[in-house]
């Protein structure tokens, strides 16, 4: 027990908890919009584009954060457009981007000093390995994204729910779509090289999914999603420390369990 407490009190675990909290708040909040806008796989594709940016940076000696954000923003600009959607479904486009950048990530990483180890890190990440100096940076950027998102939430909501009426009301919906993807891409770009693609994707999908099953009003859905993400993060960290399990996977399993329980509860109570 004392050994566990010691590990838990270590700066490494405390930093992971701090990073997990801000990821949970921002990811839980944005995830509600991602799920409602039916762009779950855009989140995954953006994360993959961003991962390719990190792989390229590591190969050519750029700053990974800079490269990840740059790639994520380019991906955001791409997804904010409506590319040939009269001929092909959007899902096909998202799939193509995901596959292309997955392959690119592997190719770039295979030429780097750490090879496939880097690919593994980009995919699964390790929240326990986040450097202390990164914690403040993630918090500041996370709070910035959150603040902008909260301030513009009603415009994002209107454009997501009814873009045509938004246009008729004078909103430049393409600009708003771009702004939304910019926030999403920026958030993913900032954290991808620290915690990995899978965890970010998990934060954007699982908490919101559970929340939508149990809460009825949008404000409550957002609140429950953030709470889900926080509980999943904390539970995942604690369980992974106690049982010496891979942290990212444990956090995701905890969030999935929570989502599963909420889904069953939602179905049973008819919400």
């Amino acid at each position: 027990m004392s050994e566990w407490l010691e590990t838990w009190r270590s700066p490494m675990a405390q930093d992971a908890l701090r990073v997990g909290i801000i990821l949970a708040i921002v990811g839980g909040y944005m995830g509600v919009f991602v799920v409602l806008k039916r762009i779950v796989f855009v989140g995954a594709a953006l994360a993959q584009v961003s991962a390719a940016g990190v792989a390229l940076a590591l190969l050519v000696g750029w700053q990974p954060l800079f490269s990840a954000i740059l790639f994520a923003l380019a991906g955001s600009a791409f997804f904010a457009q409506s590319w040939g959607e009269r001929r092909v479904a959007r899902e096909a486009l998202i799939g193509a981007v995901f596959l292309t950048f997955s392959a690119l990530t592997v190719l770039l990483a295979s030429r780097g000093a750490h090879g496939m180890e880097e690919v593994q890190h980009l995919l699964a990440g390790d929240i326990l390995a986040v450097a202390p100096e990164e914690v403040t940076r993630i918090w500041l950027l996370g709070l910035l994204v959150l603040a902008v998102f909260v301030m513009l939430r009603k415009e994002f909501l209107l454009v997501a729910f009814d873009a045509e009426t938004a246009q008729a009301l004078g909103y430049r919906t393409r600009l708003w779509e771009f702004a939304f993807y910019l926030m999403l891409g920026g958030f993913i770009g900032v954290v991808i090289h620290l915690v990995g693609l899978v965890l970010i994707f998990g934060y954007l999908v699982l908490p919101a999914l559970g929340a939508l099953m149990v809460a009825r009003r949008l404000t409550r859905v957002v609140g429950v999603a953030v709470l889900n993400a926080l509980v999943g993060t904390l539970a995942g960290l604690v369980v992974s420390v106690i049982f010496d399990l891979p942290t990212t996977a444990t956090m995701l399993v905890c969030m999935s369990l929570l989502t599963g329980v909420e889904s069953v509860a939602g179905l049973l109570t008819g919400r």
Binding site: L36, K154, A160, F161, D162, L169, L212, R217, L218
Partner: peptide
Amino acid sequence: LGYVPQREMLDALFPLTALDIVLMGRYP
């Protein structure tokens, strides 16, 4: 200009109340 779109175009997945939706007309 007040606009009433085809209601099939709207996504009923959004957990919005009738009042939430009417309030959207006030956003501008």
